[in-house]
């Protein structure tokens, strides 16, 4: 069975503690509930979640939507944002989990990547080193979201052209963001490699496209 792998990287550094991370959890739960109601997504989407703070964890290995149960997400009280290390784990998991087409195996759909952060990478050197490696992995699109006033856009723009920002980190903003992500996941797996870049669906007002 060919799957549409969706990787989600979530910042769990200390600043996300409290309302922001709770809002993210609600957003993720809504996203799963919506996708389960989409027959195509229900049969094809597989999701992995990697969290990064001072530690990096794949809290959800790539799992079919039908079998998926959202794991607990915890945040430390304070500490750095190791996005570089998070991306490194992403590449390792990608190499291990995504099926490529061969004569004996049907390839998966090209994966999607969503990155959420409310700050900037603390491990800036590792971050810069991993960028070309991430770009070497095939993703239909990489969407990076800078959430809240302290999130820095510049480092994310080095990774992808698709950077969006949220002015606030409240429940409403995250809900809108995740429903926009949901739409992209629903569109993924149908777009075929004819067009050079995939057009993102228009974001709701709460989400600013960074140009």
């Amino acid at each position: 069975m060919r799957r549409l792998p969706v990787y989600i990287l979530i910042d769990t550094s200390g600043s996300m503690k409290g309302e922001p991370i709770e809002a993210v959890k609600v957003g993720l739960a809504d996203m799963m509930a919506t996708l389960r109601q989409d027959p195509y997504a229900l049969e094809t989407v597989s999701i992995s979640i990697i969290t990064y703070d001072k530690d990096v964890k794949q809290i959800l290995p790539l799992t079919d939507l039908a079998d998926l149960q959202l794991p607990e997400i915890t945040t430390p009280d304070s500490g750095p944002t190791h996005l570089g290390a998070g991306l490194k784990m992403l590449c390792e998991k990608y190499d291990h989990e995504v099926n490529h087409g061969t004569i004996n195996q049907k390839g998966d759909w090209m994966p999607l990547l969503f990155i959420l952060t409310d700050g900037k990478p603390s491990d800036i050197q590792e971050y810069n080193n991993i960028i070309p490696i991430v770009k070497n992995h095939n993703f239909t699109s990489i969407v990076a979201c800078a959430a809240g006033p302290k999130a820095q856009i510049e480092p994310l723009k080095k990774l992808t052209d698709n950077v969006v920002s949220l002015d606030t980190m409240d429940g409403n903003s995250f809900r809108k963001f995740f429903s926009w992500v949901t739409m992209q996941v629903q569109a993924g797996g149908k777009s075929v490699g004819t067009t050079d870049s995939v057009e993102l669906p228009a974001p709701p007002a709460e989400i600013n496209i960074v140009i």
Partner: peptide
């Protein structure tokens, strides 16, 4: 067929 599904 390509490396990924749908690539042709």
């Amino acid at each position: 067929e390509g490396e990924f599904s749908g690539q042709t």
